[in-house]
Design a binder for these strands. Sequence first.
DNA 1: CGGTTAGTTGAAGGTCTTCAACATAGGTGG
DNA 2: CCACCTATGTTGAAGACCTTCAACTAACCG
Lengths: 251, 251
Amino acid sequence: MTIHLTRAQDTASNPCTHDYQVNCGNCRLNSICLPLALESDDIQQLDDIIQRSKPLQKHQHLYRESDDFQSVYAVRSGTIKAYKTTDDGQEQVTGFYFPGEILGMDGISNNAHASSAKALETAAVCEIPFASLEKLSTLMPNLQRHFFKLLSREITEDQQLITLLSKNSADERVAALMLSISGRNARRKLSATQFRLPMSRVDIGNYLGLTVETVSRVFSRMQKMDVLRVDNKEIEILNPQGLQDMANLGS
Amino acid sequence: MTIHLTRAQDTASNPCTHDYQVNCGNCRLNSICLPLALESDDIQQLDDIIQRSKPLQKHQHLYRESDDFQSVYAVRSGTIKAYKTTDDGQEQVTGFYFPGEILGMDGISNNAHASSAKALETAAVCEIPFASLEKLSTLMPNLQRHFFKLLSREITEDQQLITLLSKNSADERVAALMLSISGRNARRKLSATQFRLPMSRVDIGNYLGLTVETVSRVFSRMQKMDVLRVDNKEIEILNPQGLQDMANLGS
DNA sequence: CGGTTAGTTGAAGGTCTTCAACATAGGTGG
DNA sequence: CCACCTATGTTGAAGACCTTCAACTAACCG
């Protein structure tokens, strides 16, 4: 049985109940998710292997560490948190995934997921069975290339986080994260200056290698400096250049 | 003109001058580098695209950040350091690559190398032109799968470093690096307890997000605790279990 | 052999953490 | 719908760990 889903949208708050099929060709995230030079016929083939049957409730897991690796996932709506649990039970957040972004690729190397993924809010994902993707990739060099690039991109992003953790102060780390989220919102044609953080302070601290208290203090400081307006999870960037300076990432 | 090279070996200190061709089939690193279920015919095809014409002097660059991406590289002998330079001129070491390991994959995503790579000592590498590799991968599903896995592996390793930087103390970080090097030596049938560090204290600190002074102090402390014997770059692990405990990575 | 680079050690200082108390938000049942 | 309860977030004070600065020693290289 095929479940017909609503059109992909950033928030699940306004679910469209019209019963028509989403596909990669008409998905408005495809410029983020699949910036491919694929023939429309190719897109159809890709579309055929993708499963859209996974709406997730808040806090629900998409997969867990050491689960069998079967698929990678593209976020259609909501936000997914990826994290590892260290052997002494601590959590390390390895990434936040917004609509259009792809997660789960760290599971390829060992045929088992290297991290867990859970929804921070109601979320919908496209499941891409990896075996099918591999087969299709041998037939479509563009697709193969795209996935090589996606994997490589994940590496460069991890390296940026490594640099951030290794070299930057608490202020700089938080500023960098805010800029990252802002940029990713802009890419989805959402406001770059006003947004709601889907993750908790704990998650932010965990991702940035800081304690909750430090994150909270940084937000207070930024607010005092009129760089940010912070109202619980609602963020407004009042001074983008100031935030950029604060991040001190050069570029 | 084809340059005939000596057999791959871990240290370049004892160069064999016999003039015979190395190939993937007879390379003693192939179990690390290509643990593939490839037919010997396939290995020949792979072998044909690989170029072995790159002996590097100490401090010589293999590639630099933002160079055009053409190839990935397998280390045959010596050690390569990968690093990024932040916009304010600081260096962030992103990895050390030992014989049998593959680097340069972070360049795929943007067709430009995302980091620089330089030899820490005399080194030899196998250059694998990526365009050829892609073409061959469409024909050899096993090879495609292998490279997906290699990329994925790099991601999981970066995530481990992220966790290390985010959660672990200076002692734990240095201990973890020593264990990592020890394990990689063992994989190459070298001593797991005695080795010479190819990198400087600065590089270690840079990789682990610590200052040189801290690294030095950690080594002194470990020596005082009879966990390690440190004589400049010569390391002897006196108490492997103690080192493991010190790393506090669980597992 | 001299000069430079790399590594070690000590003392002081800074940034983030820890511990603790309090405030606010969010969800549930009366 | 409000009261309550728990989870989440904020703020302060003390302390820990790592850094910074400085001096010195040891290794390396021409």
